[in-house]
Design a protein around this nucleic acid. Structure first.
Length: 431
RNA sequence: GGAGAGAUGGCCGAGCGGUUUAAGGCGGCGGUCUUGAAAACCGUUGAGCGAAAGCUCCGGGGGUUCGAAUCCCUCUCUCUCCGCCA
């Protein structure tokens, strides 16, 4: 959510920022509401002051055993006027907030302009042998063929049990998924300084609103029937909401959390896209990184967050590249986003495996997450950041495809072996 | 599911219709004292809106009243006991 005063006082800058993202916005109604609200507020304040003064006088008169009927009658009328003004204020406030909640964040100055993903800017490439992915000496198989041959993921059974876009992991498949979760959490907690949390997988409307999923993107969420809860689309939601409506001590910043959770997404509007395999599921696992930072430090924290996510891929020996999303490709709440894309040999392209963003104070304002800078009288909004570290299902895809052997077996990356009982490769299960 | 008790400033806790502009304590900050620290003492210390005057905020919402932290209704959450349960 943008600062109301920013919208009022620097309207042109806001309009220009939205335009950079490819949007047009008419702030006329908002500004009119603002004027109306402030005028009513002023009048109500004046009347309240009068009521406060006179009510005190009534108290004194009554205590002294004297009549106060005239004052009481007068204040009854004043009370009615205040009530009328309050409803004007309330309505204007609600209307203003509803408008503010649908305005996206303004892009950071360093974000490249562009209308869609074709304008994203590549930042770097990495691979175990330099920058470019190694060439396989044979025709790489897609991960769904490998998974079927190895009998480690069963999409047909999952479709029977639930429906399309779900997966049933079996044997070494399930073990690999679990190994990755543990490996990532261990790395982030013991080497990168994050505190592990295991949050609820369902959240309420207020939490979804704070991070920006609501009110605009309800159709992308699973809602629990007979309740007001939503399944989380990412751990970002419950974890960012941990300090909602709180004032953090300055010395606690930068606060760093990591969390494993499953993620649930409707994937509305993606019919026919990535229908095969693990790439696009209604339920997938993810290890998330979340930070609460001082505003002046948030961009260096974004670089550090990105490096923490990259480290997972480096240790796994998976080729990747980093891109900066252009203004038109960024999410609603983000001020700046880096995507990490992992190399998938069978698709002969890079695919998103992590998204690392700085939301600046956009989410903090919605969630009222503040801190008091040392030596300052004022509280300020923190900056929130988060990134995948990493999407686990897609990491499985990348391992299957990058570590596949000519015979269809898959080598297990060195760092994962201790998590998989010392196994060095995944082979078809012996009956 | 049944019965009961609660929700007050960063924390604890008093207040139960009109000097509450929320007592007191803890914690924080500043000072005195000290070689330094501790202790002691003194002062200071909630949030929001507004250019200011001022106004609002005692879990959320609604009501009664000239006036509500205080009375009534309702919702949410917490705690205790009983029952059930992974």
């Amino acid at each position: 959510m943008l600062d109301l005063r920013l919208v009022r006082e620097r309207t042109e800058e806001v309009r220009a920022g939205i335009r950079r993202r490819g949007g047009e916005i008419d702030l006329g109604e908002f500004l009119a509401l603002d004027e109306k609200r402030r005028k009513a507020q002023q009048e109500a304040d004046d009347l309240r002051r009068k009521r406060n003064d006179v009510s005190e006088e009534i108290g004194r008169l009554k205590k002294a055993g004297r009549q106060a009927d005239v004052q009481v009658a007068e204040m009854r009328a004043v009370g009615d006027s205040i009530a009328a003004l309050e409803s004007v204020i309330r309505e204007a406030e609600d209307a203003q907030r509803n408008i503010l909640l649908t305005i996206p964040n303004l892009p950071h100055a360093s974000v490249p302009d562009g209308r869609d993903e074709t304008a994203n800017v590549e930042v770097k490439r990495w691979s175990p042998i330099g920058t470019e992915p190694p060439k396989l000496s044979f025709e790489p198989k897609p991960h769904w063929d490998l998974a079927e041959y190895l009998d480690i993921i069963d999409f047909d059974r999952a479709a029977k049990i639930t429906g399309a876009r779900f997966a049933l992991y079996k044997g070494m498949g399930a073990r690999l998924e679990r190994a990755l979760i543990n490996f990532m959490l261990d790395l982030h907690t013991t080497e990168h300084g994050y505190l592990e949390v295991l949050p609820p997988f369902m959240v309420n409307r207020a939490s979804m609103t704070a991070t920006g999923q609501l009110p605009k993107f309800e159709e992308e969420l699973f809602k629990v029937e007979n309740g007001t809860y939503f399944l989380i689309p990412t751990a970002e939601v419950p974890v960012t909401n941990i300090p909602r409506d709180e004032i953090l001590p300055d010395e606690d910043l930068t606060l760093k959390y990591t969390a494993y959770t499953p993620c649930f997404r409707r994937e509305a509007g993606s019919y026919g896209k990535d229908t095969r395999g693990l790439i696009r599921q209604h339920q997938f696992n993810k290890v998330e990184l979340v930070k609460f930072a001082r505003p002046q430090e948030s961009y260096q924290e974004l670089e550090a967050l990105l490096a923490d996510a990259e480290e997972v891929l480096k240790r796994l020996g998976l080729p990747y590249r980093v891109i900066t999303l252009c203004t038109g490709d960024m999410g609603f709440s983000a001020a700046k986003t880096y995507d990490i894309e992992v190399w998938l040999p069978a698709q002969d392209r890079y695919r998103e495996i992590s998204s690392c963003s700085n939301f600046e104070e956009f989410q903090a304002r919605r969630g009222n997450i503040r801190y008091k800078p040392k030596g300052s009288k004022k509280t300020e909004f923190v900056h929130t950041l988060n990134g995948s570290g990493l999407a686990v299902g897609r990491t499985v895809v990348a391992i299957l495809e990058n570590y596949q052997q000519p015979d269809g077996t898959v080598a297990i990356p060195e760092v994962l072996r201790q998590y998989m009982g010392g196994a060095e490769r995944i082979e078809p299960r012996k009956k």
